[in-house]
């Protein structure tokens, strides 16, 4: 299982902080799946992705047991 984390606006608009997928996919494929499931959450298209707490490119393969997070533009400080 691959755990997906959503934050801020993404969490609010999907109503989910945590989701999961069972198949191994690339970051890009997971992003596309989420956009298909939640077409109104346009922020998913531009959010950065992190795999296992490190920023990751679209081509990175997300494996069983991995954790992928979608990170909208940050505003800490």
């Amino acid at each position: 299982m691959i755990k997906i984390l959503l934050f801020a606006e993404l969490e609010e608009k999907t109503g989910k902080r945590e989701l999961s997928v069972s198949m191994e996919m690339t970051v890009e494929e997971i992003r596309k799946k989420l956009l298909k499931d939640y077409p109104h959450v346009t922020g998913l298209a531009s959010a950065m992705a992190a795999v296992n707490e490190e920023f990751a490119d679209e081509s990175v393969k997300v494996r069983q047991g991995d954790l992928i997070a979608f990170i909208p533009p940050v505003s800490g400080g």
Partner: peptide, 28 residues
């Protein structure tokens, strides 16, 4: 990865960029 949500008298919004100046209602 830290986000702030502003709460005003007439609404609320996740602030969407690092310069604190603009929110991106479209996410982009």
């Amino acid at each position: 990865p830290i986000w702030k949500k502003e709460h005003w008298e007439d609404g609320e919004e996740w602030i969407g960029d690092q310069l604190e100046n603009n929110a991106y209602p479209l996410g982009v």
